[in-house]
Design a protein around this nucleic acid. Structure first.
Lengths: 167, 167
DNA sequence: TTAAACTTTCAATGTTTTTTGAAAGTTTAA
DNA sequence: TTAAACTTTCAAAAAACATTGAAAGTTTAA
């Protein structure tokens, strides 16, 4: 496999993986491209490499910046904007975990909490609803703590120790 | 909030969360319904509760069984098939983690491995591609271990200890 | 056997999401 | 100021994905 093949394989894999994880293909592909690019790229560069339209590039770059994993960069003496991705995968994971917690997990936790606090009326179905949503609530909170405190935090020794322990 | 409201809220929340996690809405809703149902339900019951067609119910039930989180059950003397979900959320998480590892993470790890092993040709871009895919490969393997060995395994004391440690 | 009771399949249809591209908007240099 | 260089927005088109429902398939009781 030569460089071009490897690059394309990586970009398209990352792209289809992205959609499984709730971000769209173009967004994931732009991210993949920036991640392996030693130099910042302009919007023009990105459109060309990935064969996507200007609008598409613009919108997805914005989303990536909202996620905090892609940044604008300005070359002195140039009007054009350039983009780079967070290159440290530890930091990348931290940022992604943090955002997914905020966008998905926390709203879910709130609803699980509301639902699990309805009035116990003695019926089987109410008991089951309360029991199961309580259990999910507890699990979601554990997961939330993991995502915010364990992933990518400076205390990465925890992960290493854990992996050694269970491997 | 009464039982009906709470139930509907739970089902629709679980349904839209599902699509964020890569399974479709009907599938997630069927799962939610079975999770809080004290009795096994027939396909008819499910179609009625969720207002979905027979075909839809059939296909998504099959997928849930493929994921190993929903089971067929036969009532004696009855021809009809009934369905229940895995009720233990710990076991549920284990099963989901295992399947996602198998379906998504492991194929990705393989590709990251292939890509990170291309010939180093001395160019900056090749160096960067190798460096980044190696880092992602390592991270993906750590995550894979976590998903298969830590989540839901009998050794749940690990999770508890970890949460206490970092909370 | 047969036929009733049930489940599965799949082409057609409907829905949602993504993408395009051209017009509107913004910034900067002169 | 103006106009060139660039970015953003958004309605319309395309693509992807989910759902329906009727026909085909399967199982079981008699």
């Amino acid at each position: 496999m030569n460089y071009e093949e490897a690059k394309n394989k990586f970009i398209s894999t990352w792209g289809s993986l992205g959609s499984l994880w709730g971000i769209n293909k173009a967004m994931a592909q732009i991210h993949a491209l920036l991640l392996i690019s030693p130099e910042p790229l302009s919007m023009e560069d990105i459109m060309e490499e990935l064969h996507i339209s200007r609008g598409n590039a613009s919108m997805n770059l914005r989303q990536l910046m909202d996620w905090g994993i892609v940044f604008k960069e300005n070359k002195i003496g140039e009007r054009k904007e350039y983009f780079t991705s967070e290159k440290d995968v530890q930091e990348l994971a931290k940022q992604i975990a943090k955002e997914r917690s905020r966008r998905e997990l926390q709203p879910t936790i709130k609803i699980l909490n509301d639902v699990s606090n309805i009035n116990e009326d003695g019926s089987d179905k109410t008991k089951e609803l309360i029991k199961q949503t309580k259990a999910l609530h507890e699990m979601a909170e554990t997961l939330d703590i993991m995502m915010n405190k364990v992933v990518g935090q400076g205390n990465n020794w925890i992960t290493k120790a854990l992996v050694k322990l269970v491997k």
